[in-house]
Write a protein that binds this DNA or RNA. Structure first.
Lengths: 311, 311
DNA sequence: GCATCAGTGTAGCTTCCCTTAAGAGTTGGT
DNA sequence: ACCAACTCTTAAGGGAAGCTACACTGATGC
């Protein structure tokens, strides 16, 4: 008893003759007859009776035919289930992000998607080296990742939605002599003790560029990945650091100054597997991320940074 | 997308590897892999992802796999539906009967099956010639039919449940001279005007036998099939008639006397297609019919008839 | 009674699906 | 760091299942 046999039985019941059922199923009457015989073999009571030269269902056959409707319904539902999953407006969308992007973007997302009928979010912060971002697309629909201009591009296996091209400024403690300048050169900052990310993490390449431009080794006093912690340590006089201009929350005792002479910018991108955007919910979240990026890179930029950006 | 492919997908989702799914389905991993590839062809988004050397479901695959559960459930329900139909205690049982059997048996049936959980009855009276009874089994689960002892037996295509072997008595109007006798011979009744059934109907053969035993043609005054009408006409002096001893309701102005010298009995049988008794509801109704028959042929027999039967 | 129609068997072919065998990628141990 | 074991995939071949074509039986209607 399989789906095909049940469909034949149902058509026979509804159309009332083997020939009509055969036409509906686009096969010959012989095929219908053979399928009916096979079905009958698996059932101990007659499903059909001859009525004149027509063949009609017995009550048992009618009982089975109505059960067949359930089978066809379930199959149709299955066939549609993928489309429904793809088109579900309030589907669950998982978004992974490194810390500063998470802090900057997620509040925007949560506010924009608070309305019922919006995609539901599953957020997860992930602190990984640059090469660690693409694999995260296995477990998350969208991965907010960052890489420096001159670093290796993302592999071809992931799709990229650019969000920000964010300047990296030098973070100085308030009152530091260098705060007097509108912008800083590698030479200006080469003597200072530095607070940097751990090896392999994106911003490290710019630190190396500063070192090269200044022609000397930098003193790497501390290795801290988390910018909120970095800001506190800078404010406390632990050293100076590179900090993103837009995505790090301003610290009252920390001043940002643009760095000239080296290309100090990072890309903040949304990575995702190409097929994930087939889901309207995922596409919707990507759209809101772009909106949030525009907002972050203009209105939300602190006044100091905005003025510096024009310089 | 068919049931087999969906089952493979579901097993993969639950067991987490192609090999395990293959073992569960008693096939080789290669077969599973090929089925998955076929299924994937019909869906625009990936259903599976490699995870190390294992293959697991994507969210879309999980959505489809859960829809697959519905398909399997519906198929299982279909496979059971015939058994349920067969075993349904309160199933609908259609019973056809000729008039006098209907009047005698149906009240018993309706009383016996009034309790909830009993078979539900669909009753229909049918006034047909003897050869018309077997075809009625196409449309009814049980057909109450009658035939005379010496008439042709029922065809082999129908099953027979004997219910009554009922004497046919001579119905006389109260006050008629012949009521003085305890039993009558063909010679006693050959002179009377007769009320008989229409040609082809079961009791006609006994009339012919009476005629033959008496050695003369009977005067067939009226042709009436319905015994209630016959009884009224007999009471009004329209003639005498053969009437069944147990299944005809006694009429106050009609007296029954047994007929000797000819074999005047009829069989009242329940006819049915053999497969119909596979249904417990039908079997149950047949049982109640047997009980009713025992009751009809003893307790319900009118005193006159009972006394006559002993003679 | 013959022509027509409906359904069923049979032969043969196509199609599908499974198995076997080989290959590619991953994991874990020595 | 290589090698062995494991997992999945692909290709080729064989067997089963289903369909078509065609002949046949039984029912219907002029």
């Amino acid at each position: 008893m399989d789906e095909r046999q049940l469909r034949v039985l149902r058509e026979l019941g509804e159309l009332g003759s083997v020939t009509a059922a055969a036409e509906a199923l686009r096969v010959t009457p012989s095929a219908v007859s053979q399928q009916l015989r096979l079905l009958q073999r698996s059932v101990p009571v007659p499903l059909t009776v001859r009525e004149g030269r027509r063949l009609v269902l017995t009550p048992a056959g009618q009982a089975l035919a109505s059960a067949a409707i359930g089978v066809e319904t379930a199959l149709a539902r299955a066939r549609r289930s993928v489309d429904e999953f793809v088109g579900q407006a309030d589907g669950l969308v998982s978004v992974a992000a490194f810390h500063s992007a998470a802090a900057a973007f997620w509040p925007h997302l949560l506010r924009a998607l608070a309305a019922p009928g919006s995609p539901r979010l599953a957020l997860a912060d992930e602190d990984v080296a640059q090469s660690g971002f693409p694999p995260l697309t296995r477990d998350h629909d969208i991965v907010l990742a960052h890489r420096l201009d001159h670093a290796a591009p993302w592999p071809r296996t992931v799709s990229v939605t650019p969000l920000l091209h964010e300047p990296l400024d030098v973070a100085l403690p308030a009152g530091h002599p260098l705060t007097a300048r509108a912008s800083l050169t590698p030479g200006d900052v080469a003597e200072e003790p530095w607070i940097t990310v751990h090896d392999g993490f994106p911003l490290m390449a710019t630190i190396d560029a500063v070192s090269a431009a200044a022609g000397r080794r930098l003193h790497l006093a501390h290795r801290i990945n988390e910018f909120a912690v970095v800001a506190e340590v800078v404010a406390a006089g632990g050293g100076i650091a590179l900090m993103p201009r837009w995505t790090a929350r301003p610290h009252p005792q920390v001043v940002l100054r643009p760095l000239t002479g080296v290309h100090a910018r990072r890309h903040v991108d949304a990575l995702h597997r190409p097929e994930r955007t087939a889901r309207t919910a995922v596409e919707s979240v990507l759209g809101h991320l772009r909106t949030a990026a525009a907002s972050i890179s203009s209105q939300n930029a602190p006044p100091v940074a905005r003025r510096a950006a024009r310089a």
